[in-house]
Simulated assay, not measured.
Amino acid sequence: MSNILKRIPKNKTNKIKRKGFTLIELIIVISIIGILAVITVPKFSGVLKDAKVKADIASAKVITDATYAQIAKGLIIPGTAVTTLDITQSATGGSKTITDYLQKVPTPKATSTANFTVVINSEGDVSVNVGGDELYPTPVSTYGK
């Protein structure tokens, strides 16, 4: 047996290649992935909340445009007092006029406790609120937090 080892050149015996990773290398990689996950999960939830707020603001703009279109057609007439209309699937009256104009009745994404509400003042200016927070034309900074 020793004669066989003597015939193999020394540079060949030193270069035996090992395949795979050591346990330490695997543990280090897994710990790095864990640290990255701990950092990114809270950031992702913040981004998701911001996206829901922006979606609600966009829906409020669509509702405002629909309301102005119905005012222009004469289907909604601003009164002498402030008019408040709830935008829901089961809307009636002026709210029904707006929901019929929309292809789909939007629901707020950032909050599940309230619906969109259209407020029309005596001058015909329209604003859209959710749960008392104005979203359009000037969104409040506390909405969705």
Rank of each mutant, 00 (worst) to 15 (best):
S2N: 13
K6S: 10
K6N: 10
R7H: 08
I8D: 02
P9F: 08
K10A: 11
N11P: 07
N11A: 04
K12T: 10
K12E: 09
K12V: 13
K12A: 10
T13E: 07
T13W: 09
I16F: 13
K19H: 14
T22C: 12
I32M: 12
I32P: 02
I33H: 02
I33T: 06
G34E: 05
V38G: 14
I39G: 07
V41W: 00
P42R: 08
F44N: 02
F44T: 03
V47H: 11
K49V: 07
K52F: 06
K54Q: 14
K54T: 14
S59N: 13
S59P: 03
V62H: 09
I63F: 04
A66D: 02
A66K: 01
A66W: 00
T67H: 03
A69N: 06
I71F: 00
K73D: 09
K73A: 11
G74F: 03
G74L: 03
T80F: 15
V82Y: 08
T84C: 01
I87L: 06
I87G: 04
T88E: 09
S90K: 15
T92Q: 12
G94I: 00
S95G: 15
I98S: 00
T99K: 01
L102H: 03
K104H: 12
K104G: 08
P108V: 13
K109V: 08
K109F: 07
T113L: 12
V119Q: 13
V119E: 11
N121I: 03
G124C: 08
G124F: 05
D125S: 15
V128K: 07
V130W: 03
G131M: 06
G131A: 08
G131H: 09
Y136L: 04
P137I: 09
P139C: 05
K145P: 02
